[in-house]
Design a protein around this nucleic acid. Structure first.
Lengths: 368, 368
DNA sequence: CTGAAAGCGCTTACAG
DNA sequence: CTGAAAGCGCTTACAG
């Protein structure tokens, strides 16, 4: 006998079925099913019979076949997560949400399968293929459809959207108070004496980017501080963008005053800025304060650590699973219909070392 | 008509089946199957019939049912990934490997489902439950069984182990040249003038931790440099451990010389050290150099970026998928048997800003 | 308390 | 070139 690892159960080369167990125990496959897989009808079987069935199942290493069960029950007990993989890499944002999804799904006895897309608009056509059978529900993580394409979305599979670019009708949209978060952060920065606050935006046109810009602008208006339009800089939600945009700005602004602070669209972007600043010999927070958005793991692994607007990403992932499961149960008639179309999670400011009271205005000197 | 999103195909409340398509096209379900799902037998159907079937499928929004297909084909086209979630959080190591797995699986038309375990020894009993039906193969990510428990491992499902603590017989073990990587890094550090090199180890007893320690020791021996045993400190493969261990060392070593450099068991650990050093006002790399291991996303998103020993984690994930698929095809008789039990990936040193030539020896001053 | 039957939606031989 | 039948392994009524 070679490796016992790959040895078949008991001579036969295939996994044992309920019929095998029933045969071994001298009962029908149905009786075996009642004992082994369904608690409800299990009571019907007498104690001695039940013991024989359990012993036979143990002996044959019986495992229920998930595909057969799914076919009969019309339920896979699996949730799908669709996300776009930028540059072939999942990021901190995904990791935070996914942790919540995984945890909540496991607690509810659900498996989680991940669908990595390259582009929302182009790959949306693949979404329906992934549904109907393989998963019971789908979570779209930060979908950015250029236009809503309802016919591309699954018909018989409930879904939930986390941070959708456009609220999607017919599903639970999970959002966070981004405008309020940006407003509150900038308000506090102003209260601490910052006046020239640069904002490096997310991808223009995306809901999340625009909301953060609005909060940034509203905080200035509320404080009666005029906003220099040159301080609002178009960027993207990525590390690479933060570095590129700030490098360019620094190289084009020699002799100009530095802003008091830089408020980035997300932590990843702020990390990129941190690198550009370090290259230029500009200290954080002594020369300029730096603020992120998200409070992902990245915010705690920089030196200095990032002051940021915290979004409860993990909790949002947990909620996505719960909302989805509620929809699934409702669809199966197991729960009364009650779908809240949009849920908004609160944000909060988290102050860490990267931001402080503003420094004296410094002028940029020519690099190296 | 409310949301067209959740509207049933054509009046009926359930997804269309092959029988529905066949009926609509005036052919059998089998003919529809031939045209829609199997390229091989598809040629048998005449062109006009095929067109009618395709039109009917389009009209009814037909999607093959994955569970039914899996039951008939004995193949789910899904790969499982099992990993331990430390403290409720997946880490950068997982993220890097998972990126490779996801990418390779998608290219091969395979889905990926994630099983998050709390503890390898305790949850190993759950592994077989996850197999036989639901997935075709299982990848164990950094499994740390205190002892090999073959009977707990799946019988009819091929699996692969990435960075196993104990090489597991009967499956592909995917490792990296950890000892050589640690040796080479420490050798280069010594060549650059570092003499007092602290090592914060991974969890003692784990293969990866011991191999890195061995490389660290061998590099000293090769250079003829005596190794101060006080510089080898027991730690764990985590962010939290790095911070805790170094905080304690710093508080207990007031008046002692700082080491020239700290070589951490992994990037996460180094990130924790970075935080402890920042708290103590110790600059990296001016006062002490800091070196990690892995080259995860964390190594590039710290400031300063980490010098580290790169393991090709993404490629290892890709390889795990390919090795698994080869095993699956072989099991199904689609490929000749050829299993390499162990594959070792090379490591390489990556120099970034966190390590430089050693500073003058500095003595610790009392904290704050 | 237990079993024979039908069905979930697909595929794979086997007939015509 | 096309169809009727059997089977994948389970569950859910329906009989006894």
């Amino acid at each position: 006998m070679p490796a016992s690892l790959s040895a078949p159960s008991k001579g036969s080369g295939r996994p044992a079925t309920l019929a095998d167990v029933g045969r071994a125990a001298g009962v029908s496959a149905m009786a075996a099913s009642a004992v082994l897989n369904r608690a409800q009808t299990s009571a019907r079987i007498s104690s001695p019979t039940r013991a024989r069935i359990l012993a036979a199942a143990e002996h044959l290493h019986y495992r229920p076949n998930a595909a057969a069960r799914a076919l009969a029950e019309r339920r896979m007990n699996t949730l799908g997560v669709a996300a776009v993989v930028v540059g072939g890499e999942l990021d901190h944002y995904f990791l935070a949400v996914f942790n919540g999804v995984l945890d909540a799904a496991a607690k509810q006895g659900q498996n989680t399968t991940v669908f990595a897309l390259a582009n929302w608009d182009r790959d949306a056509v693949r979404l329906p293929e992934l549904c109907d059978g393989r998963i019971d529900g789908l979570i779209l993580i930060a979908p950015t459809f250029s236009k809503v394409v309802p016919r591309f979305l699954p018909e018989h599979t409930p879904f939930a959207a986390l941070h959708p670019n456009i609220p999607i009708p017919g599903c639970v949209n999970i959002e966070s108070a981004e405008e309020a978060g940006a407003f509150e952060m900038v308000r506090q920065m102003i209260a601490r004496g910052h006046r020239r606050i640069m904002h490096i935006s997310g991808n223009r046109g995306l809901l999340g980017a625009e909301r953060r810009i609005q909060g940034y602008q509203r905080a200035h208006a509320a404080a009666g501080i005029p906003l220099d339009p040159a301080l609002l800089i178009d960027g993207e939600f990525s590390w690479r963008s933060g570095r590129r945009v700030l490098r360019r700005w620094l190289s084009q602004s020699v002799g100009q005053p530095l802003p008091d602070a830089i408020f980035c669209c997300c932590d990843a972007n702020a990390v990129g800025c941190l690198e550009a600043l370090a290259e230029a010999g500009i200290r954080v927070p002594e020369d300029v304060s730096l603020v992120g958005f998200d409070d992902t793991l990245a915010a705690r692994t920089t030196v200095p650590q990032l002051t940021t607007v915290r979004q409860p990403l993990r909790s949002m992932g947990v909620h996505a699973v719960e909302a989805l499961l509620a929809q699934i149960q409702q669809k199966n008639g197991e729960a009364p219909p009650e779908v809240r179309e949009t849920v908004i999670f609160p944000t909060e400011t988290v102050w860490r070392a990267s931001a402080s009271a503003p420094a004296q205005v410094r002028r940029l000197v020519p690099a190296r």
